[in-house]
Amino acid sequence: MTEIFDAIKHAAIGISRAIVNADTGATSHTNATGDTQLKLDVLSDHIIEEAFASVTSVQAIISEEKEVQTPLHVKGRYIVGYDPLDGSSLVDVNLSVGSIFGIYEGGISGANLKAAVYVVYGPRVELVIAHEDVRLYRLTPEGAFAFVRTLTLNPKGKLNAPGGTQQHWPAHHKAMIGGLFAQGYRLRYSGGMVPDLHQILLKGGGLFSYPATSDVPKGKLRMVFEVFPFAFVYTLAGGEAIDGNVPLLSLTPSHAHDTTPCFFGSREEIATVRATYANH
């Protein structure tokens, strides 16, 4: 597992440099789920693929930017599913973006996730590894990732990051979000999954939600590349992650690019979600 983490660190440094210097324009292509690919998406995907090419424990990789798996090493134990540059459309307005990695053994289901890593590219480059616990690292001027601290979630938080277009929210979800704000929760939503979930984790707790909506009834976020890795992080940090009713890590996609509604947060916020969605 260490060589996988080292490959991710190496790729993260390359991507951080690309964000600063590379072209942020769009390509003429779309990815497997129909999103327009930016040049940075493609470049980041290439950087990650190169980083894993020599990691013999990795059997295959599968990217949000590709339709099928890329085989690497026949005798490898792990499959790495990743989003090379989540929130890439925010780069041109200079907001934080990130990379997300899930390390699977025995197939790409929530139950088969063995570790998760994400990287935040912002004023500082930070990396979080969830394996035996959840650890925060920060890129130093010398080009190494230094350990900062172990991360845990409080039983109750104060931040609320509600995703999706509000006019498409179901009534019960809208009422739940309004109820949280009425209790004094603070709105924190950038449009980037990585920085928003990172903020909730570092600030001790709260709720990130992306529900089923009338325009995306199966949710927008992808299980293998985005949802499962963060569900693993939040669960290991002492929080919970559900689809509204069941734990996200109990789900199995029928296709690598399947999506799901998702809620990540502290235990009290997730209890509120369960109560809201119990009859829906």
Rank of each mutant, 00 (worst) to 15 (best):
T2A: 12
K9W: 02
A12W: 01
G14T: 09
I15H: 01
R17N: 14
N21A: 12
T24V: 07
T24W: 14
G25E: 13
A26M: 11
A26L: 15
A26T: 07
T27Y: 05
H29Q: 12
T30H: 10
T33N: 10
T36F: 06
K39V: 03
V42W: 14
S44F: 04
S44A: 15
D45Q: 13
H46V: 03
I48F: 11
A51H: 14
S54M: 06
V55G: 04
T56R: 15
Q59R: 13
V68A: 14
P71K: 06
L72I: 08
K75H: 07
K75S: 04
Y78M: 07
V80L: 06
Y82G: 01
D83N: 03
G87N: 12
L90Y: 01
L90R: 03
V91F: 03
S96R: 03
V97C: 01
G107T: 11
I108C: 13
A111V: 03
L113Q: 12
A115N: 04
V119M: 00
V125K: 02
V125Y: 02
V125R: 01
E126D: 07
I129A: 08
I129R: 03
I129T: 14
A130F: 01
T140M: 11
E142Q: 13
A146I: 10
A146E: 15
A146C: 07
R149G: 03
T150D: 08
T152W: 01
T152P: 00
N154S: 11
K156P: 02
G157L: 06
A161S: 15
A161W: 01
Q166Y: 12
H168Q: 02
H173F: 12
M176C: 03
F181K: 11
G184Y: 03
Y185K: 04
L187M: 09
M193Q: 15
V194Q: 00
V194L: 00
L197N: 11
Q199I: 09
L201C: 09
L201G: 09
L201H: 06
L207Y: 11
Y210G: 07
A212E: 15
S214P: 03
D215M: 13
P217M: 14
G219C: 07
V224K: 05
V227D: 03
F228H: 14
V233M: 00
L236H: 10
A237E: 10
G238T: 13
D243C: 08
D243L: 05
N245H: 08
P253T: 12
T259S: 12
T259I: 06
T260I: 05
C262T: 07
C262I: 04
F263C: 02
R267M: 05
E268K: 11
R274G: 06
A275R: 14
N279P: 01
